[in-house]
Design a protein around this nucleic acid. Structure first.
Lengths: 345, 345
DNA sequence: CTGAAAGCGCTTACAG
DNA sequence: CTGAAAGCGCTTACAG
């Protein structure tokens, strides 16, 4: 079979065309297994995650798959399901399949991303991070910047006591969120920060409500908020899921959003535009991050000597909606991202 | 390498154990490509969809992947992206990879599922349908039954003019929805049905808002509703996305839900519990359907002579919430599924 | 029951 | 530039 990869072939285009036609007529398909064995190269790229239970991780999976397919690679999907053993299995599957590379969708819980990446690159499998934190090449949304911006917006709107609703497990992305919030708060001495931990620290996620863990987090976080005698007037939530569920639960208890408490989300999923009230959030550029992460992997595969250990940070986009009341406009570079209009026009 | 598949091996367990230990110490991994080439069998199963743009299709992808991995098979993911050409490519990828089978995640637009399945089974690739309609083995949620039940609930609540908000493209699953609604309506002569088509019939989906097409559908459908001089008092929506967006848009125009219009969804995604008001919907048993579809594929692969052309229909579960006001209880088999309590306890 | 040989369908150096 | 041979790492029939 003619392999179309080596660019300029040795045979004429007309001949190649005739071969292709004959091949199609005969129902011939090149044998991928034989090709891989002979060339000792594959077009397989592992797409590894600790879980695909959240909307946002499924979006990442989709973005990665799309970028890989577009680049001529086949995704090899694997979910470790929060088990250290799962990551070991992922490694052996990639090794057995002679995978050309791997994309780690972050965060990788409970095994640190850098540890997994070290194992894979040590086995000759170039590995990049997709929102799994730096320490290896790849790309991610700028969480620190995003949460800095959310906090600045809350402060700018006059809030002096700001709450942060944390997730169940503390992973690197969460550390970045906290860092962004704290950076903004530390600039304003009159502003205090309180954190809400809905789950016991570092509790492993329970499989029972794993599929709507974000919603459960928001619900439990709302109860912590309601128990608070002097609750903050603004709450920054880990994610949109958490924020939507938080609003729903406190509203059931008679709390008004945004009058009593302004609520900020993070992710920018479509559903955030139809929550009650519509959610102020920062949209993650999932497709762009996926394209950047895959792009850096492909260059790592094709030009192994490029020690381009770069981790690209892409900015999120603030979408101001009713859940925070009116937000002041901050002067921005280019002044593009802030969109004070509600979603439906 | 010792292949663990043939069950009782020729060597003792102790020896096998020593081999495994040595293999691990040496960092040996069996070469999957060589194994596939030699045995002319693979553990690859195609997971094919027209798109992964919707929350529910990503959930199906996740359920299928999980079931496949659990059964010892590797998913080979492919999205045709609404292109007939995409389906042709899917076929050649599966053939080139000597895939052991395929799961079609429905609906397959614009190529009919049965046509794709015929091509694949003709090429020796057993194929099942996951919510892609019958005509081939597999499994799906009982859409006809679900929409019958939703309509019965609306009628039971006293609505005599019921609206159905259709999606952009009419596919087989949508035909089943309509059939369920019409069956219930035809039983009650005093009830009339009106349908809302937000998009021109059979318009191909626009890539621009493909990722939040459900929300766009709800928004446009709401405008049709608002233009109506004698609008129905109950609206059954194609999906949760559509319903949530519909409610949001009509509420912006001053319409009260459920007082002015009762809204019914379908899917039972977590976000439906936190909409405003919380959405009455039917939950799809995605994991169970995925397990059933994969189960039927595996039996097709392992026992090819079983002409088990069965398409299993799994029932959805009605979750009554505030978007429809109080719903009367229908006597049910076992009387279990109806849950009149709102989500948060 | 065991071991050595053939062969799966390609790619890749290597003679011609 | 072209064609025939070797070989990728396994599995599988097939002699012993």
């Amino acid at each position: 079979m003619l392999s179309d990869s080596p660019g300029a072939s040795r045979i004429s285009e007309a001949t190649a065309q005739r071969i292709r036609e004959t091949a199609e007529r005969l129902g011939y398909y090149p044998n991928v297994a034989a090709r891989r064995l002979a060339s000792s190269r594959t077009d397989l790229v592992g797409v590894l995650a600790d879980t695909f239970f959240y909307s946002i991780s499924l979006r990442r999976l989709e973005a990665t798959t799309r970028a890989l397919l577009k680049g001529g690679y086949q995704p090899l999907v694997w979910a470790a399901d929060w088990s250290p053993d799962g990551w070991t299995q992922a490694h052996s599957i990639l090794a057995s399949n002679s995978a050309a590379g791997a994309v780690l969708l972050g965060p990788t819980y409970p095994v640190p991303t850098t540890e997994i990446a070290r194992g894979l690159t040590g086995a000759g499998i170039p590995t990049v991070s997709f929102d799994a934190g730096d320490g290896l090449p790849g790309a991610g949304v700028d969480r620190l910047g995003a949460f800095y911006e959310l906090t600045r917006a809350a402060i700018g709107a006059g809030h002096t006591k700001i709450g942060y609703l944390q997730p169940g497990q503390v992973t690197q992305p969460d550390v970045l969120r906290m860092a962004g919030i704290e950076a903004a708060v530390s600039e304003c001495p009159h502003v205090t920060l309180v954190t809400f931990h809905p789950f016991p620290a570092d509790a492993p996620p329970a499989r029972e409500h794993s599929r709507d863990l974000g919603f459960e987090t928001g619900r439990l976080g709302a109860h912590r908020y309601l128990e608070d005698d002097h609750p903050p007037s603004a709450i920054i939530c880990y994610s949109d899921d958490v924020a939507i569920s938080f609003m729903h639960t406190v509203q059931s208890a008679g709390v008004k959003v945004p009058e009593d408490v302004a609520v900020f989300g993070f992710d920018g999923l479509p559903e955030s535009s139809c929550s009650y009230p519509p959610l102020t959030t920062i949209e993650q550029p999932v497709d762009a991050v996926g394209a950047a992460a895959v792009g850096s992997l492909l260059s790592l595969i094709n030009v192994p000597d490029t020690a381009s250990e770069e981790y690209r940070l892409l900015p999120g986009r603030l979408i101001a909606r009713e859940s925070t009341g009116t937000l002041p406009r901050f002067p921005q570079d280019g002044d593009g991202p802030v969109d004070p209009k509600p979603h439906d026009g």
